[in-house]
Simulated assay, not measured.
Amino acid sequence: MGWFLPSHMDQGLIFGLLGIWHMYNTLQHFITTPKEFRARTWFLAKGLPTVLRSMELWVLMFIVVVFVCKQLSHAGQDIATGIILAEHLQRFQHVTFAAFFLIYVVVGLVTEHFPTILPLPQGTVHATFALGFLMELVVFHLGHHPGTDLESFVHMLMQLILVCLVTFMFLEILWPRSILIAVARCMVLLMKGTWFFQIGLLINVPYHIPLGCSIGENDDYPLCATKQAEMRAKSLQVLIFGWQAVAIVLGTFISYACMLHYSHYISSKPTILIPGVTTPRFKDQQVYFVVPEVGDKEDHDSGESDGGDLDADGIPINTDSSTTMSRRLSSRNHVLSPDIV
């Protein structure tokens, strides 16, 4: 695309950030509510207004629209002559699989904000998103780079990523509660971004061109002078491909461990139970409130106990439960424990 970075590098950044966003939300959902976990293709941005909570879809729509407009910049010339030039064929192929992503975004927004207009079976949005990557795979395999040079080789590795991505997305439809499949799909999506970025480095940064290869003025990809240099260049790409995969797998385990320990740290704060207290949100459930550790200076010395006797924890004895809850919240500034949020 080459919007704000050289060609392929901006696509790598977009898919890489999308993979990280999906990985974080998937792990967070599983850690906080493992019994309610279900795979998703997009995630709400918490803390924003209702319309903007689907920010991921709006951003993706903007990216796809700009991509389509850029690819069709020469469409007027082709339509006027009635002939699609050979160098413009790939642009129309790109628009074809981008159309699937645009349909996915529109359907996702409609089902989110107007669910009664377009009620869909479970997994429909998931399948639509997967079809976009499937069409991209078809375009790469049949419409791009049929040769055996370095350009075809790096795109062949991209096809392997797309095969895994499409497979995992359709498996998510069959087993939507499987955390392993959901995490694997996020890892492959992140791998798609890192490999796109590597292709961008290969064709735009002279330092990353393998020895024995060079890019001419009219060439888009490096050409190798000898067969041996080409074999060496391909071996380097396989090595980089493997390093990226190892880094993503290791980073996933580290991220999960950090998020899990942080969640345990938050939930390990001391709590007490105030029996008999119910609210509309937590009706018929036990409600916990975080209390300060013993020894902290409280309101005991300020005389704000309303004249009642206090127990060892500073809770008024023989008072109405609703009054107790109100006094505790106002005097101690307690917050709900993460265990029940």
Rank of each mutant, 00 (worst) to 15 (best):
V138F: 11
V106Y: 00
V277W: 15
F129C: 14
C69Y: 00
L157F: 00
Q286K: 13
P115Y: 05
H155E: 07
N204R: 02
Q93N: 12
I317Y: 02
E172P: 01
L202V: 06
G295P: 00
M231V: 10
A127F: 09
H74F: 14
L165A: 07
M55I: 05
F4N: 07
I203V: 05
L109D: 03
K227M: 10
Q11T: 14
L131Q: 12
Y207I: 13
M231I: 10
F62L: 15
K234S: 00
E87C: 02
V294A: 10
L13V: 15
L142N: 09
Y262L: 14
V335S: 12
D320E: 13
L239F: 15
V59L: 15
D299Y: 12
T323R: 10
H113W: 07
A245I: 11
E217A: 14
W195S: 02
I240P: 04
A182F: 09
I63N: 08
H264K: 15
F30M: 08
H261I: 07
I79H: 07
V105Y: 01
R281M: 13
A99Y: 02
M259N: 04
Q198W: 05
L57F: 03
F197L: 08
V110N: 02
H74A: 12
E230T: 09
V138R: 05
F37P: 14
